[in-house]
């Protein structure tokens, strides 16, 4: 099993051009980027992939020890970047992949040119003097709900996207795999995601960074986005007039424009 198969890596765009790598968040897969990533194919080498446990990834590659911390996922990003021999990379991470991106860039800064964090949160749990937006009880309930009610997260999840003859662009491939998540892995990934604390890692990001924050995000509130902006040296923040945690789906135009404004400097 190669790295390419393990992550169902897809490469498009201009061969040899500056690479832009899109990393999806918890409960999603690379289809999350389908309205955004193609918009960069004119001038970039565009890479999308699935984290192990999501989408078309190789479930057999899931190792509870490796993926017991976000570092394991960051190692995967680095392996992908090395395997494809990408340099000068623009890394775009949504949700938990924002912190995975922070860890990857901090570990091997020479590979990366810029970092885009969409709806980032370095710490979901509230803490002394810090508002993450989640109480311990919230997270305990989330983990419990994943534990006890995985019917809601597995069998009931699959048919959310159904075939639709009126919308041929929803191909069979998309309906079959949209945000397909292995329930057992999702449970473990949730634990890692919602119990991590990466606040101290933010200062280690040495590349230009853009925070994309939705005005009304139930998962990562504006205050958290501001915290990330302030903690990463020189980072900027764009407040997207979008509701929800997935502007890549709910506001793809605005998301694309904000990313483009940040990364296209110096590009035609």
């Amino acid at each position: 099993m190669t790295v390419v198969d393990r992550h169902d890596i897809r490469v498009s765009g201009v061969p040899g051009a500056q690479p832009i790598v899109f990393a999806h968040g918890f409960g999603c897969d690379q289809h999350m980027w389908r309205h955004v990533a193609p918009r960069f194919e004119d001038a970039f080498t565009v890479v999308t992939f699935d984290h192990v446990g999501a989408g078309g990834s190789d479930l057999a590659a899931y190792d509870p020890v490796r993926y017991g911390t976000l570092d394991g996922y960051a190692q995967d990003v680095l392996e992908i970047v090395r395997k494809l021999d990408l340099r000068d990379v623009v890394l775009v991470g949504h949700s938990v992949s924002a912190m995975i991106g922070v860890l990857a860039v901090a570990a091997e800064p020479d590979r990366f040119d810029k970092l885009v964090l969409v709806g980032p949160s370095p710490r979901y749990l509230d803490d002394d003097g810090y508002t993450g937006g989640f109480t311990r009880a919230d997270v305990a309930e989330l983990l419990e709900s994943l534990d006890s009610n995985y019917l809601g997260w597995s069998s009931a999840m699959a048919p959310v996207i159904m075939g639709n003859v009126d919308r041929p662009e929803l191909g069979a491939e998309l309906t079959a795999s949209f945000c397909r998540t292995d329930p057992d892995i999702a449970r473990r990934f949730a634990r890692v995601t919602f119990l991590s604390d990466n606040r101290a890692d933010l200062a280690r990001v040495p590349v230009p960074t853009l925070v994309l924050q939705c005005t009304d995000d139930v998962i990562a509130p504006v205050a958290v986005g501001q915290y990330v902006r302030d903690a990463i040296p020189g980072a900027r923040m764009v407040l997207l007039d979008a509701t929800g945690h997935c502007p890549n789906l709910s506001a793809p135009e605005a998301t694309t424009a904000a990313i483009a404004g940040f990364v296209r400097a110096g590009h035609p």
């Binding site: 968040g25 918890f26 409960g27 999603c28 999350m32 989640f134 919230d138 997270v139 309930e141 989330l142 709900s145 994943l146 009610n149 809601g152 997260w153 999840m157 959310v160 996207i161 159904m162 639709n164 919308r167 929803l170 945000c179 139930v218 998962i219 929800g244 945690h245 997935c246 789906l249 709910s250």
Partner: peptide
Amino acid sequence: DLLPVGGRIYHETHYAPALRLQ
């Protein structure tokens, strides 16, 4: 806002996208 955390994440990643999509 009326959903617990697990439901909110599910809402954001599946329910709302599905509604917009189809």
